[in-house]
Design a protein around this nucleic acid. Sequence first.
DNA 1: GAGGGGCGTCGAAGCGCTTCGACACCCCTT
DNA 2: AAGGGGTGTCGAAGCGCTTCGACGCCCCTC
Lengths: 336, 336
Amino acid sequence: MVTLAEVAQHAGVSASTVSYVLSGKRSISVSTRRRVERSIRELGYHPNAGARALASSRSNIIALMVPLRTDMYVPVMMEIAIAVATTARTHGYDVLLLTGEEGPDAVRRVAGSGLADGMILMDVELDDGRLPLLRETDRPAVLIGLPADTTGLTCVDLDFKATGALCVEHLAERGHHDIAVIGEAPAVYERHTGFAERTLDGLRGRARELGLRLLHRPCEGGYDAMAVTLARILDERPGTTGFVVQNESAVEPLLALLRQQGRAVPEDVSVVAICPEQVAVQASVRLTSVAVPAQETGRLAVEQLVARLGGRGGDEIVLIAPELTVRASSGPAPAP
Amino acid sequence: MVTLAEVAQHAGVSASTVSYVLSGKRSISVSTRRRVERSIRELGYHPNAGARALASSRSNIIALMVPLRTDMYVPVMMEIAIAVATTARTHGYDVLLLTGEEGPDAVRRVAGSGLADGMILMDVELDDGRLPLLRETDRPAVLIGLPADTTGLTCVDLDFKATGALCVEHLAERGHHDIAVIGEAPAVYERHTGFAERTLDGLRGRARELGLRLLHRPCEGGYDAMAVTLARILDERPGTTGFVVQNESAVEPLLALLRQQGRAVPEDVSVVAICPEQVAVQASVRLTSVAVPAQETGRLAVEQLVARLGGRGGDEIVLIAPELTVRASSGPAPAP
DNA sequence: GAGGGGCGTCGAAGCGCTTCGACACCCCTT
DNA sequence: AAGGGGTGTCGAAGCGCTTCGACGCCCCTC
């Protein structure tokens, strides 16, 4: 391995000069800089990460903690993770992938060992066990998701409350009065994942304001579960003409079942989904949807964290405004 | 931050003794070990990763390069990534997440800087640009996928050729003669991703041996593409009774279209999928399938790499034997 | 022409750990 | 009783980099 000292010797300067060329923390004459850069190129020099971390006590690594669960829609996680990784690189950071498996201890280990300069946590629960540990460490952290107590923490998330409201508004505008919400799996509500509850708040709040009837039913993904759920809904509220779906793996089953029952979309019933763009476009009926902005979320999380790491304070809470795209799955309510 | 020296002082021993307690590289008396361990606990000591890496020239980090593409089935990638991360932890390694974005340079950067001790590459193409660089570095690497030239590289993958053969055999045993293969998107074949071509080899080879007719059609995911593809297939080979699908996002559309056309599964046509277990089970018809063993793949890749890192040579090529699970989507061919 | 202030460069002191050789000590053997 | 071989511990020398203070030089100002 080529070292700084060798580069310095090759360029005929001192080691510190090479270091300053690399970091730009002191001014260097153009001629010297060029000479050094040339040596770096010719020798194929790469600074040693460990030595750098030791001397500067910054590792230039961001830790990303992904959940271990598989009951969440995985592509979204992946998209966020990839957005985090690529955005991090543009700021000179690498990303360490931590799974939930290790539990809260991972926070202590990574912070304590100086492995990472900061962390990003995905799938944060309302009362997340990692938060106290996070507050103890001096390292900055950004949460993707919104816990109950956000003091001292930066959070990034889609504004799910506004999302819920937006879906209801859309259906209301088209004259629907009876709306059913196909929610996430019951387990998601049971562990109080914030986004699911906040969506529900938004849905219910706006429904009340607009005088609509709203029925909420959690639903595991898949055909069988969806069939049961749908039957129950139509039994309780036969007049339901609007659906809001917030469970990607229930989308296609719902469409299939409606078709099977002879209920045309959007002529008889309208469906609004809260899901990634791709799902909405690739579904058997192109779905009117509010997109879950995975990339945007990952990017913002990194940018907040980098701001914090650079001493610039970021915002406390960054809520991404929802956008509803009208496609083929929603239309005016049928005449009664 | 607590340092080794502070622990040593607290325990009344020298720094090197603490280091040896931690690494176990020299024998330490039980009493001393206990005293040191106690101090470590009481002070909440975590070894500094940078210092460690510098002194030992091993970072205890594995780099995982995931593809940037989104035309592959993402959940599989995610599952592999998570399996890699958790398996790595059990061997004392952390995982650095690299995206394809940075390109082959990432290999040079990570190897050159000593950031990672070894790498795992996902979605390796037959003639992958990263391979020459990989061979240049002294760091061991494991590929997930099988390139054309494997000299000097360790590879882990499902045995896709055997997988293809297995699918054909299954259909042949049930009396099907005309088989259609719904393949991955054309782009996947165009960039010569090995697994797709090897599957095809296996399918074709066995079909020839068993005297079956085989039609292969690449297919983008989604309903529209699938509709076109299916129409073409049935046009060319109206007698087709067996389908092999190797594109997760074509599975559900295919089932829906068959249903729509009044072709019952499995009474009229049989469908065999090559997909993750979860997709097979959650589909609208429970699918006879060969599982893509994502977790197993990730785990094996890490174990191969760790073996290499520990000086033990691993195998050159590890092919996972396919397993076909019979479910509800395949049955005897209909009488002609 | 002396003093002041940038600018560009250097030397040296660590950063916190691993690891090697040295050595003290004890228990056996002869 | 002397020698030999473990065993357990220590001290010191780095690992390759960053960073701080120092210093020489040149240009400007009064």
